[in-house]
Structures are given as structure tokens and as C-alpha cells.
Design a protein around this nucleic acid. Sequence first.
DNA 1: GGCCATACCTAGGAATTCTAGGCATGGCAG
DNA 2: CTGCCATGCCTAGAATTCCTAGGTATGGCC
Lengths: 107, 107
Amino acid sequence: MAHDRIKGNLDLLLLAALAAGPAHGYELAASIRERSDGEFVLAEGTVYPALHGLESRGLITSSWHVVGGRRRRVYELSGAGRDARDRQAADWRRFASGMNRVLGASS
Amino acid sequence: MAHDRIKGNLDLLLLAALAAGPAHGYELAASIRERSDGEFVLAEGTVYPALHGLESRGLITSSWHVVGGRRRRVYELSGAGRDARDRQAADWRRFASGMNRVLGASS
DNA sequence: GGCCATACCTAGGAATTCTAGGCATGGCAG
DNA sequence: CTGCCATGCCTAGAATTCCTAGGTATGGCC
């Protein structure tokens, strides 16, 4: 809804947001929304399945906590997750610079 | 194949490439490949349906030509296409800057 | 004559995200 | 003390988008 362009970048967004420290799903969505100045508003139905996928691939780990009577599943980057983030961030930069070259060449 | 990140950006790539002047499908794929330094390698099965979609939305127009015994369908940006390109390019810049904010905030 | 580059096309698959729903707790306003 | 909203988690299936895989046809080169 925010942007179809999120396709292919969701994992990177989550990994990058988690690089700032452990967080739970609901919090991650808010964090990404704030950091992007409201540009990326991720629905919960988007965030949770994506987190499950990242965990099943070993890029993040989770643990349950109870805070104020509410259960939370807190996620944390694994070593492989940090590597994946670095790789995907590099991919993103290459992609963005390709886009800018194609866009700029039109003048 | 080049990048899943192309999702959502294909139309803009084609519109931007066409902004340099009329071109046919095969040529556009090559043009985008070159301008992006090999970053975006679009399959024909990607390019042609996308062009048909752009035409059906009135963003480009086409005309058949025969050059050297080979038929070509040459596409050209319409006025609405130029507007769409400007809008989508602006969207892209907002998106990219959102990405960079989220990525950069992790340090 | 065979092969490759050029040039177009489409149907269906694959991958990804979103919609729409569901469940549960705590706190606050009324 | 009762709604109601924010917090917090989840899933199934729809929707969207691009790619795979296949097909057709011409011209030029060896």
C-alpha cells in the first residue's frame, strides 16, 4: 500500500531495523514507519510472516517475553543475519544506482 | 533474475528509457541493460507484456515499421506517459530516500 | 543448409506482499 | 464496570507482478 516498490526489499528493511537492537514485531513496524518518515507503513499481516521466514532461514532468532502482562516475541539478528543485511544492503545500493543511471540518462 | 527489486519499478524503467526517444521492445531491453551497466537484464517475456500494459493505459503509443525486412513495433511516450514518468520518478526518489534512512539509521 | 542474432508474442508458474479476518490483555474514559 | 482503543500476536487466501518456457518469423554468415 505504501509502495509496491517494497517488493523485494522487505527482508532488508526488517534486518536493517533489527540491526539497531532486538525488537518485537509490532515495534519493528513502528520503527520502520518512523525511520522512513511515514513512507513505509507495513501491515501486521506483512511483518509477522516475513519475520517467521527470516527466522526459519536462520537470519534472526526469537524469544518470548512477558512485559506488563502482555506477551511479546522479541527478535534479534544472528551472525548470518548481519551478513545477510550487509549483502542485501550492498545489493540495494547497486540496484539504486542502476535505477538512477537509467533515470538520469533520459535528460 | 537480475533483481527481485525490479518489482514495482519496471514501468518506470521503461518510461524512463523511452524518454530518450522512440524505440522498439528489443531495443529497450538492450538500452536498459546498457544504461544500468548490466544491472537490469530484462527477459523478453517481461518487456513485451509490460509495454502492452503501458499502451493500454495510454502512457505510450505504438506504430509498426519494417526495417531491413524485419517488422518492428516502435513505442513512443505520450503526454500522459511523460507525466507518469515524472510522477513515478518522484515516487522512486521518495522511496529510495526512505530506504536509505532506514538503512542508515542502523549505525 | 544450419545456425545465430534480431524481433515479436503468450500462457501459466513462481514469488512476494497485502487483505481480511481472528484472538487476547491492559488501561482509560465515561 | 463497561466500552473502546492501543498493544501484541497470528494465518489463509487474494492480488499483484515478473519470469520461465515455449512458439513464430526474417536476414546474414559460413
